[in-house]
Simulated scan of single mutants.
Amino acid sequence: MADKKLTKYEEALSKYNTALVDAEVNKEVKELIEKKYIENDTTDVKKFLFNCIDLTTLKTEDSPESVLKFTEKVNQFDEEYAELGHVAAICVYPNFAKIVSSTLEIEDVNIACVSAGFPTSQTFTEIKIAETSLALQDGATEIDIVINVGNFLSGDYETMCDEIEELKDVCKDHHMKVILETGALKTAENIKKASILSMYSGADFIKTSTGKLEPAATPEAAYVMCKAIKEYYLETGRKVGFKPAGGLSTVKDAITYYTIVKEVLGTEWLNNKLFRLGTSRLANLLVSDIKGEKINFF
């Protein structure tokens, strides 16, 4: 009996070691952080991390007025703290893209929109395409989508990947960040597979979490994703970015993810074109730490 032919997705996965053991990953991450964290706990690193933030508001109670004020704060920060630079992006729901676009005065701050049935990805592909297209028309410069976790976990890689490809076609040259929702994937093996399939399907970034499900970002998930990015780069020559998001609530969290990116991916990834932090809480904490006084600006 002839061997069953691999699908193109199984063939893509076969080029990588996905048989990871969670306990081994946890041990490697713990050792890396214990060994390398301290050297990155510096003011320069904290300033860099502030410039990597996707400043995010994704609340049920968001309104045109609140998003307008949120955007104006970014403008004001640039005037009052020019020496610190600015965040990398403002991240909002797609219906607020036009407000951010018309209010934002800083040219190189991106406008990121969560799209395509965020946060569950449970809607029609046609709706996802329309929502993404409308966000881009209204001024979004980056799109954050979520994989269909149900399709992935049931082994339906084709449906999941086809959808990512279709949405990347809509985004064209605009960066598309693909959220894995690592808390739902649970194992290092699943996270590695989802990372590879997302990159294979056109992701410009892979992102840990929506922030709407616990656990959100973890150092272990970040480590596995960065390993996947590095291996994918060595295999294809294409650099994909990394974005931890969800649960980033301390300066220590930010430095921990910086340490993982630096050690696994290298200094080539230490710029806000390839490394982002999805958070709202962290901006004030980093500025306060840098300035040596409590600052609640955002």
Score class of each variant (00 low, 15 high):
Gln76Arg: 12
Glu34Gln: 12
Thr236Ile: 05
Glu214Pro: 04
Ile33Asn: 05
Leu277Val: 09
Ile260His: 10
Asn151Gln: 12
Asp41Pro: 13
Leu197Gln: 11
Asp3Gln: 11
Met225Ile: 10
Thr279Ile: 05
Thr259Ile: 10
Cys91Lys: 02
Ala116Tyr: 03
Lys47Ser: 07
Ala130Gly: 04
Phe124Cys: 05
Lys230Trp: 01
Asp144Ala: 07
Val109Pro: 08
Leu282Cys: 10
Glu163Arg: 08
Glu10His: 13
Glu235Ala: 08
Cys226His: 02
Glu65Arg: 10
Asn110Pro: 00
Glu268Leu: 12
Ser280Val: 09
Lys8Trp: 03
Ile53Tyr: 11
Ile145Ala: 06
Leu180Val: 08
His174Lys: 13
Gly278Asn: 08
Lys73Met: 05
Phe297Ala: 00
Ala221Asn: 09
Ala203Arg: 01
Thr123Cys: 14
Thr210Leu: 00
Cys52Thr: 14
Ile191Trp: 06
Phe118Asn: 07
Thr71Gln: 00
Val29Asp: 00
Phe118Ala: 03
Ile90Ser: 08
Phe77Asn: 02
Thr259Arg: 08
Glu158Leu: 01
Glu83Asp: 14
Lys294Met: 06
His86Arg: 07
Glu65Ser: 15
Asp156Asn: 15
Glu165Val: 08
Glu65Ile: 09
Gly246Trp: 09
Leu153Gly: 05
Gly183His: 00
Cys113Asp: 01
Tyr16Ala: 02
Asn151Trp: 15
Val287Cys: 14
Lys46Ser: 04
Lys98Tyr: 08
Val29Trp: 02
Ala254Gln: 01
Val25Met: 01
Lys192Pro: 01
Glu126Ala: 15
Tyr37Pro: 09
Tyr258Pro: 06
Thr218Gln: 11
Ile229Met: 01
Phe70Lys: 06
Gln122Glu: 15
Asp289Ile: 01
Arg238Phe: 07
Thr103Ala: 13
Ala97Ser: 14
Cys161Ala: 12
Glu10Ile: 11
Ala216Asn: 09
Lys172Gly: 00
Lys98Met: 10
Leu274Pro: 07
Ser249Cys: 14
Ile33Lys: 03
Val264Ser: 11
Glu293Leu: 14
Thr60Arg: 15
Ala2Gly: 09
Thr18Arg: 00
Lys291Val: 02
Ser102His: 12
